[in-house]
Simulated scan of single mutants.
Amino acid sequence: MANIKRKCVLIVVMLLALVLGACNSNTAKSDPYSEVVEIDGQSLTITLDENNLSAGTITSENGTYTFEYGVPGNSIVFTVNYPDGYVFSQTEINGGFATPAEYNSIERKNKGYIDLFSLNYSIEGVIDNARGTSNNGSPSILLALALIGVGAWNFFGARSVWYLFRGWWYKNAEPSDLALMLYRLAGVFLIFAGIICAIASF
């Protein structure tokens, strides 16, 4: 009997180690998201701020741009600082864009800079890509919820879990106290692992 207890405890510990290893595979803060894009024949590197995907820098052969999307009130303000110090700000109100009258895209192109509308389109694409991969490598909140749910079921409904996995094999069988204790213990470990995954996913 003691040999069975040791084997069961060893299996539970190994399962816990596997679950925690999967949850904690990449909880360190990742580098800022960066992507190389081709705009108007120029190769640009768009790098998003690691804390704010709505801001970042654009590195080109003509210098470094900075950009930021802000949301004051009900409008979205898109601001770009060109390498020569020119600041462009565009406001979107109810789906329409208000572009400053002094902006001259031909002048910008003649100076070797990228047209703002092309920049905006490319930046939005990079931001969309980053949002799709910003949680890459870290555990999903769905995994955390699943672990917590299964753990709670193991803890509070150990008899039904036992029946699902073993009880249906036998006629008129009852789980032993040891089996119920091990299922409850596994439930505690799964809940703990789910909490760790939930914390790591943020």
Rank of each mutant, 00 (worst) to 15 (best):
F117M: 12
T91W: 14
G137N: 08
G85I: 03
E124D: 15
V77L: 14
G95P: 05
P139W: 09
P100L: 09
Y82C: 02
V77S: 05
S122A: 05
A144M: 01
R131Y: 15
V80T: 04
I76F: 05
K111N: 06
N74P: 01
L142C: 07
F97G: 00
V126H: 01
S122L: 02
P100G: 08
Y113C: 00
N129E: 12
Y82H: 00
G125F: 01
T133M: 09
N94T: 04
I106P: 04
T79H: 02
N110Y: 01
I148T: 05
F78Y: 08
N129Y: 10
E124W: 12
G137P: 00
R131S: 09
S105N: 15
G149A: 10
Y103T: 11
V150K: 11
N120C: 02
G96L: 14
V150R: 12
S89V: 10
K111D: 03
N81H: 12
P100F: 10
N136V: 13
R108G: 06
F97A: 14
V87I: 15
N81C: 04
S105V: 09
S134R: 15
N135R: 11
T91C: 10
S140A: 09
Q90R: 14
A101L: 06
G149T: 08
V77Y: 08
T79D: 06
V77T: 07
I141F: 11
K111H: 04
W153I: 15
V150F: 13
Y113K: 03
L145C: 11
Q90T: 08
G149M: 03
E92N: 09
T91Y: 12
G137I: 06
S75P: 01
A98K: 09
N135P: 04
Y103K: 10
K109G: 02
D115N: 06
F88G: 14
D84I: 02
W153R: 13
F78K: 10
I141W: 08
G125N: 08
I114R: 00
Y86H: 11
I76R: 13
R131T: 14
E102F: 13
I106Y: 09
P100W: 05
G132N: 14
S75D: 06
L145P: 03
K111Q: 03
S75Y: 06
W153E: 12
N104F: 00
G137D: 01
A146L: 14
P83F: 02
G112T: 03
F97P: 03
I106C: 07
G112P: 03
L143M: 14
E102D: 11
E107A: 12
I106W: 12
S118R: 00
A130W: 03
Y121G: 02
R131P: 01
G132Q: 08
R108F: 11
V87A: 15
I148G: 06
Y86S: 14
G95N: 09
S138R: 13
S75E: 06
I127P: 06
V150M: 14
T99I: 15
L143K: 11
S140L: 04
I106R: 10
I93C: 09
T79Q: 07
N154G: 01
P139L: 01
S118M: 07
T79A: 06
G96E: 13
Y82L: 00
N154S: 04
G96T: 15
I141N: 07
S89D: 10
N110P: 02
I141P: 02
P100K: 10
A130T: 10
Y113M: 04
L143G: 08
S122Q: 05
W153M: 14
N74W: 04
L142P: 01
F97R: 11
G151P: 02
N74M: 07
V126L: 03
G85V: 00
